[in-house]
Design a protein around this nucleic acid. Structure first.
Lengths: 163, 163
DNA sequence: GCAAACTTTCAATTCATATTGAAAATTCAA
DNA sequence: TTGAATTTTCAATATGAATTGAAAGTTTGC
């Protein structure tokens, strides 16, 4: 297999993964491209490699920066910005986890809190309260676990499971 | 807060969560509705409560069944099928995890395997191989962890993290 | 201050996916 | 069998999110 084919395969798989995550395909593909690139790339190079527009490239590079999945590199005597990826997979996983906690867990916890104000003694209201309590309990435990994980390093994390 | 408002809030939050997961909003909303319902519901009741079409309701109920997030209940002397949710949050989490492993981890592992056939000694090819190895290593470890988790029960799981 | 190099913004458009709804298929009781 | 009740399918359509591209904004060197 030659480089261009392998690149294409890698980028498409990463993009796929991204879509399954509520991350835009372009964002995941840019991350993929930066991952396999030995040196930082400019917006123009990204546009060129992935055949995407300037606006798209710019937006999604910003998004990667805000997630902490890519960084800027300034090159002496150059005006352009260059970007490179976070390549440590454990860091990547933690950073993605942090964002997902924000977008997924937090709204559920907020809802569970709000919904505690539910009045009434009907069968429906009782069942509702029961389920809501359970949801909240579980979400809080998960939150706690995620916080611990995000402080751990990779080998500690995996050791938790082995045996 | 009265029941209809709380229901709406719960269903919308669950639907939101679903969208962030590559699960269709309707599927998540049906699950939410079944979660807070004290008794199994028919397709017609689901359509009515969520204002969705028969086709949509049917498709997504099937999907919930296939994920193991809902079950059928046959009522004596009734022809209609009734559905109820898996309400154990740990079970829900495990079942979602299992599906996601299938849709997310497996394609990445497949890609990493394919891409090992990459030839060449260029700087690009070398960096590519390095990153790919790292991705594969991490994905395999994650797969192992998920397999262990899916065999554990909730308290075992959370105990892994505490302290 | 000017203009070239570069980045950001955003209204318009495209694209992927979810949803509809009616027709076809199935199931079951009589 | 037949037909009423119910479920399933799927082409057409709607919806929301991603993407484009050109204009506006910013930064820098002269």
């Amino acid at each position: 297999m030659e480089l261009p084919e392998a690149k294409e395969r890698f980028i498409q798989a990463w993009g796929q993964l991204g879509s399954n995550w509520g991350v835009s395909k372009a964002m995941a593909q840019i991350h993929a491209l930066l991952l396999i690139s030995p040196n930082p790339l400019s917006t123009d190079e990204i546009m060129e490699e992935l055949n995407i527009s300037r606006g798209n490239a710019n937006m999604n590079v910003r998004e990667l920066l805000s997630w902490g999945l890519a960084y800027k590199k300034f090159v002496l005597g150059e005006r352009k910005e260059y970007f490179f990826a976070e390549k440590d997979m454990w860091e990547v996983a933690k950073k993605v986890g942090r964002e997902r906690k924000k977008r997924e867990l937090e709204p559920v916890l907020k809802m569970a809190e709000d919904v505690k104000k539910l009045k009434g003694r009907s069968k429906q209201a009782q069942e509702f309260r029961k389920v809501n309590k359970e949801v909240e309990r579980f979400a809080k435990k998960t939150e706690g676990a995620l916080d611990l994980i995000s402080k751990a390093n990779e080998s500690t994390f995996f050791k938790w499971f082995i045996r």
